[in-house]
Design a binder for these strands. Structure first.
Ligand SMILES: [Mn+2]
Ligand SMILES: [Mn+2]
Ligand SMILES: [Zn+2]
Ligand SMILES: [Zn+2]
Lengths: 148, 148
DNA sequence: ATGATAATGATTTTTATTATCATTTAGTAT
DNA sequence: ATACTAAATGATAATAAAAATCATTATCAT
């Protein structure tokens, strides 16, 4: 099941690579694997540290570059929160969602609310504005932090 | 009318300064005046360039520091959009609002929707999450850019 | 196998913001 | 008014994340 998703994730990447006349490399393979398997919302530094275990000679720049590439083919998406390092969200097979962000522990909780989404569309239209994407972040204190 | 607001804005600042045992300076006076009078969503650089006209000896660091101070006393608020420089929103007398952001020309349109605000509260509660603040940004194409 | 060129890895550059620090200034006590 | 204490300033350096540079290596079509 996860393997099927991984296969699809990788084949999407490979298709993009080939369409653009880019090349297959061992580094790409390792990076894309690790990115898929890693948890959500990973930073380039975190991914670099994971990838180094499988491929110690790898350079940080290569990881960064390939995360950017994953973003270009919509398999990843940047999330910027405050002054933190950019995090990368794995997008394949994930529906759109927004985040609750704990001000205390930094936890990201993924949420979605259809009504809010619809009202956003409406709000944009009312302003003669054509929405392309949006970002909703609710900052506060998570359940875990409250019970401490 | 605008002058009344300005007076209130400044007296809020002065009150904060005095409470904290900070000092009155000519620079602060000029910076706070200029910030109040400037349009919304200004960057520190833009404000620096305005302030320089009234006070050519002023340093960039002083403008930055005082913008940070304005944020601390809730007269200003940082807005970070993508990779742009931080912008500072004048908050005194402004109710909360969110932004529509044009991907083409960068224009910020201020909007507010009570229903969305309420649903956000509800969404947070459902996750046993205590909301403190939020950020909603809708990216797209503004009316002006569409008619070109 | 060869050649063209994309990718890599090490390093430097860029850019925004914060920190440092010598000097000046404000506000208070004398 | 003078002197003292500490905050503020302005110039500059430090920091940190991300992008750019570039010599070298690897890929892939021929
Ligand atoms: Mn997420
Ligand atoms: Mn605004
Ligand atoms: Zn928490
Ligand atoms: Zn526009």
């Amino acid at each position: 099941m996860d393997n099927i998703n991984k296969k699809e994730f990788k084949s999407t990447f490979i298709k993009y690579i080939e369409e653009k006349g880019l090349r297959h490399t061992k580094q790409r393979d390792v990076i894309v694997d690790a990115f898929f398997s890693a948890g959500r919302h990973i930073t380039s530094e975190e991914l670099f540290n994971i990838v180094k275990k499988k491929y110690p000679e790898i350079g940080y720049a290569t990881v960064q570059r390939n995360l950017n590439l994953l973003c270009k083919c919509s398999l990843a998406e940047e999330i910027k929160i405050g002054k933190q390092k950019t995090r990368y969200e794995q997008k394949y097979g994930n529906t759109h969602h927004d985040h609750l962000i704990c001000l205390q522990c930094g936890r990201l909780i993924e949420v979605n609310d259809d009504k809010i989404e619809k009202l956003q569309e409406k709000l944009a239209k009312k302003n003669n504005f054509t929405p392309v994407k949006h970002k909703l972040e609710i900052y506060g204190i998570c359940a875990g932090c409250k019970s401490k």
